[in-house]
Amino acid sequence: MIKKLFSFNVLLFLFVSGCSLGAANTDEYKVVFNNRPSQQGDEEQHLTEYTVAIIPKVINIPYFNAVEEGAIEAGRELGVKVIYKGPTVADSKQQIKIIDELIENEEIDVIAVSANDPEKLIPVLKKAQNHQIKVITWDADTLQEGRDFFINMVNPETLGRHLMDTLAWNVGEQGEFAIMTGANSASNLNEWLKWIQQHQKEYYPNMKLVTIAATDDNPNKAYLIAQKLIKDHPQLKGIIGNSSVGPPAAAQAVKEAGKAGKIAVVGLSPPNPMNEYLKDGSAQIITLWSPKKLGYLTVALSKNMATGVHPYDNQEIPGVGKIRMLDDVVTMGEPIDFTKDNVDQYDF
């Protein structure tokens, strides 16, 4: 009888321990369903530093200095090494040389160019592409084949027509006017010129374009040209500066000629160099976008290109805001007008 009880107990014990053994060996938590492992904690930041070369049309003018500031700022914030190098004069040959040197001497992921000439730069940009360097353009475009996309500041039609409007407001929609553009070969300037003239023909028949003078973005040359314009065209009512060098030179010349208020000066220029002229009436309205923002955006999009992200319509770029994308052209935003009332708000 005792033996029998014993053997029964042994059986019972084996059964019970068999049950509890299963429970004791498992963890406190039993995974029922696993969709995918949690990414939290596993994230490793890509610490690869990309190098982006930003090539402006020319250096040492306020506009491109402001771009540089934005680009450097973006480089710091986004962790990108930014090389900002450009020719001292707006010349495609010098640009080509600089790009060539960069391709040969530096490890570069992306080159972003504001092209002085849409065609002449193509070979060197292709060479860059052959070196596995992504090429984009900003400010001034090249032919499509030379780059992946173009970062435009504003819609050229909008800008061109708006520039014409700002002059028309200040001259009573009549009289002679001249345009000071940058390099004759710069595609963006030519695009704007086209729309300025188009707009004038459509809406301001009483106005007459007397001449289009190229300054090659050289402040000295621009100043001389402005003086010459004032002298050559006594009936001149207004000057449109189609590149950022134009308006300050024109304003200075107008001021010196004692014709402040009589010859309206409008155009594209950063507000800082125009601050005084706007306030003393030598210039009326200056239009531009934020070159800092442009520099920032160029670096941001360059970095995205390096990581393989193409820009898309309505994309939110931190520090810049939303961008538009149509075909292969990115548009940064709308133009800003600077007058004597708001010019103090801006610092570039």
């Binding site: 406190e28 938590y29 995974v31 029922v32 696993n34 995918r36 949690s38 939290q40 904690g41």
Partner: peptide, 14 residues
Amino acid sequence: SEYPRINGSFRTTG
């Protein structure tokens, strides 16, 4: 800190 690091479901056992 003890939870399994998953996107899914698990159950306590103890």
